[in-house]
Amino acid sequence: MNKAFVREDAGEEGENLPAGAPSLPAGSVNYMTPAGHRRLREEFEQLVKVERPALVQVVSWAAGNGDRSENGDYIYGKKRLREIDWRIRYLSKRLDSAVVVDPQEQENLEQVFFGATVTLIDLADAGMSETTYQIVGVDEADAGVGRISWIAPLARALMKAREGDVVSFQSPAGRRELEVVEIFYR
């Protein structure tokens, strides 16, 4: 293939990442909670031991049916197999580079660090609504259920804060000020 069509500047960590895939800042550690590590490990095991072998059987059967150019099972199976293989490689790299940090082993319980669960009050809302977030790894973040990545602007603003502190950070909606109401580690 002509070198003009080959991307050589992709780093090892960001190699072939799909749109929206979480990426770590250069040189940072891949922190994970034990629960997040377990979920990734379970997904990896499911893909390697169950889904991929079953799909290989389907593709093998479809390949034996003759003309592959119009064989939907074969074409879709090969495409899905590439997706599974990519995900297995991705999970393998993430699990190999993971540093598991157990929030229950945190010693400084009065400050916010990785793994902390923090209850906040939005000061612009006159203290009417409380929200709770747990600071987790990049691969386990899901703001819809209250898990935010440790590299998110809110999490960075909260680091080392104590109960009663007011933190300010830049959100997509503009500058926000939040008061830390409670910090706990579970």
Rank of each mutant, 00 (worst) to 15 (best):
L95V: 10
R176A: 05
K93L: 12
F184Q: 08
L95T: 12
K93A: 15
A98L: 12
K78H: 01
K79N: 14
N108P: 00
M32D: 11
V99I: 14
S92Y: 03
A98M: 09
K49A: 13
V112N: 02
V101Q: 06
E182K: 15
V6Q: 13
G164I: 08
R147H: 11
G115N: 02
V58Q: 11
V99L: 12
R82I: 01
L91Q: 13
V180M: 03
D125L: 07
N65L: 15
G127A: 10
N30V: 02
G164Q: 09
E130A: 13
P18S: 02
Q106P: 00
T131N: 08
R147I: 00
G36A: 07
V112I: 10
G72Q: 14
R94L: 04
D9A: 11
V166E: 15
L17P: 04
G146Q: 05
D165F: 06
G11Q: 03
M1R: 10
G127R: 13
S23R: 12
G164L: 10
I88Y: 09
R89M: 12
V29Q: 11
N71M: 08
A62K: 10
T33I: 02
E43D: 06
V167D: 07
P22M: 07
M32P: 03
F113C: 05
D67R: 12
V167F: 07
K93G: 13
D67I: 07
E163V: 15
V59L: 04
G164M: 09
D96K: 15
R89V: 02
M1E: 08
A116Q: 05
W86D: 12
L47Q: 07
V145K: 14
G36W: 06
E13H: 10
A141W: 04
G77M: 08
A161P: 05
D139Y: 09
W150V: 09
L47R: 10
R147D: 00
Q170P: 00
I75V: 14
V166F: 06
L178M: 15
R52F: 07
R41P: 00
Q170K: 13
V50Q: 13
V166R: 09
D85R: 10
F184V: 06
G144L: 05
V138P: 00
D139A: 06
K79M: 14
S168T: 15
G164D: 11
A21E: 13
V58C: 00
E110W: 01
L17N: 12
E15P: 00
P25E: 07
V50Y: 05
D96L: 13
E70N: 14
E182F: 02
F5A: 10
N2F: 11
K3A: 09
E12V: 10
S28P: 01
Y133R: 12
E43A: 03
A141G: 08
Q106N: 15
E42V: 01
V180A: 04
R39Y: 02
G146E: 05
